[in-house]
Each structure stands twice: as structure tokens, then as C-alpha cells.
Write a protein that binds this DNA or RNA. Structure first.
Lengths: 155, 155
DNA sequence: ATAAATATGTTAGTGGTGCATACAAAATTT
DNA sequence: AAATTTTGTATGCACCACTAACATATTTAT
């Protein structure tokens, strides 16, 4: 009864080391679920939207940049960009300086999508914020940042 | 320069509502990646290990219970249990009280797996803890808990 | 300048969530 | 007794994440 925690009837304890990991995963999956509900009519995922926002704010960026920023494999980014391009939300172009690179840019349809997504982002934000004070909210973001920011140092 | 944050060269700002969601996702995926490295020789995932721990601490539990606890769909739990059973780590049995239910229990191979996983859990825990003070660590877990615990109230 | 190493994008394949849908059997509620 | 709910199951779809291998282009080392 010291370090055991209860979830919906079942006991999950003993390995307290495991607990942060578990909360992290449950929190993320709950958020993802809420995202899906709010954005269901747009048919876009969290990752896809993030990629689009990055492209919108960094026009002409590359798949490699996105991969580095979001800590995703080249092949993974490939799939995401393919889906977005297939729906006509972004376009690939030729880079002038580096002929290996391809530039990524938002299309008109993509701008419309981002516009439609904007209100919904607000709704998701509210859903998250309503649980926390302003201080807690920033605290949480800062703590989470430490986990993925110092990725190289830990390995 | 007010609410913009920079990640590895690309700018991600403007939508600050989006930012907690992003940190949450990046933190979770970084943890998952670290998990994969540490547990690579065991060939088990975070979710699978969590399911096994729940079964180990709640012998004879059901798929429905696990789904409720981890907030997963019935079909999703099905897949996870199938994989674990296919590897002989758990067994399904007949429930005495309720003939719809199937009991879930750990096999000997499963116990061995959990034993091997135990040390590695410590390593993952250390990887997480080294970023935080003890107070921050507990704070983070508590804040994350609010996101997934009050799932019904938010909807 | 040539060779070696690195960076980028691509394709193909594998595995693991996560969900919707539909079905069947059993239990519970009305 | 009938309707509803619960549980497990099967199928199929979409997305993410990675490995491996390949080709091209750029950068670095010799």
C-alpha cells in the first residue's frame, strides 16, 4: 500500500520506476484520442498537423530537417510527407543550393487545412489547460521538454 | 520571440496551445525509443510489458479489465494478448463465475521474462530520473495523471 | 584532384498499435 | 420473457516506426 497505484480496479505498483513511463504513455494516448475526436472531420493526425505547422513556419524546409526536429527516422518522415502530398496539402520542390534536398511548402489547400485546424487546436488546448493552473501548465511543458531535449546526453 | 520555441533549427511557435501536446508526444516517443534500446534483446514493447505486469499483479484478470485500466479498445487489447500468448508468456483460461470471461495468467516463461525485464526497468527509470529532482519527478507524474485520469469529465 | 565519408531521399518490407465493424455467446436489466 | 449490456473474437484499414538497401549529391580527408 506504499508505492502501489490503482487504475480502474487493477493494481499497478511494485515497479515504481515504471510509473512515470506509464503516466506518460497514458497521458499521451488520452491526448491523442481527444485530438482524433476534435479533428475527426479533417482526417488529420497529430503528427501530420505538426509537420504541416513546421513547414508553414519554415517554408522550403526539408524532410531531414523535420526528422531532426521531431526526432523521427527518415523513412518515417517519408511516409508522413507522402500522405500529406498525396492529399495535396503540401508540395515538394527542387532545392537550388543542394540538389539532394527537396523543398517542402504548403499549398493553398494546406493553408485552408491549417485555418480549419486552428480553431480546433484551441479546443484541444483548452481541454488540456482546464486541468492546470497557468504555472502548472508551464511547469509541465518544461519538465517534459527535459525528457526529449537531452536525448543525446542520456545515451 | 515571445511564444516561439526552437527545436533543432526549425521554429515551432505561434500556436502555443499546440506546444504542450507537442512536448508530450516528443517526451513519450523519446522514452519509447529509449525503452526499445534497453529492452531490445527481450523483444517486448512498453505496452506489452505493462499488460504483463498488470496480469502478474492481478492474476486471473480479463482482457476487458486491462482495456479499462490502460484505456485501450477491446480489439487493441486482443492483439496485444494474442502476441503475448503466441510467445507463451501468458495463458488464457476459463473463468468459473462468468462464462464470457477468460482469465489471464502469467506462464513460467512469462515470469522469467518479467524477471529479466526488472533490471532493465531500473535502467529506464534511472534514465528518466536523472533529469529531475525527487520533487520534480513526483510532480511530473502527478500532473500527467490529471490528463488521463479525468478523461470522462473532460468529454 | 582523387578517394572516402556523410547527407538526402527513396523503396520495400516487417511489426505493432489503434480503431470501426460485425458477429456470437453469456450475463444483466427491464 | 424480452431488451440491453458485457465479453471475446475476427476482419480489415490506417498510421507510425524502424531496418536494410540503393542512388545521388555533397563534404571532408588524403
Amino acid at each position: 500500500m506504499k508505492d502501489a497505484e490503482t487504475f480502474a480496479g487493477l493494481t499497478a505498483g511494485r515497479t515504481l520506476d515504471h510509473v512515470l513511463d506509464l503516466h506518460l504513455r497514458l497521458a499521451q494516448s488520452a491526448t491523442q484520442r481527444r485530438f482524433s475526436e476534435i479533428f475527426s472531420d479533417l482526417g488529420i493526425t497529430q503528427t501530420q498537423l505538426t509537420a504541416m505547422l513546421l513547414i508553414a513556419e519554415n517554408p522550403g524546409t526539408s524532410q531531414a530537417d523535420i526528422g531532426r526536429t521531431l526526432q523521427m527516422d527518415r523513412a518515417t518522415v517519408m511516409g508522413i510527407i507522402n500522405r500529406l502530398e498525396g492529399r495535396g496539402l503540401i508540395v515538394r520542390g527542387q532545392s537550388a543550393e543542394d540538389r539532394r534536398r527537396q523543398t517542402l511548402d504548403i499549398t493553398e489547400a494546406g493553408v485552408a487545412m491549417l485555418s480549419a485546424a486552428h480553431e480546433r487546436s484551441g479546443e484541444l488546448g483548452r481541454w488540456l489547460r482546464e486541468r492546470f493552473s497557468e504555472a502548472e501548465f508551464h511547469m509541465l511543458a518544461a519538465l517534459l521538454k527535459r525528457i526529449h531535449e537531452v536525448d543525446i546526453g542520456g545515451v
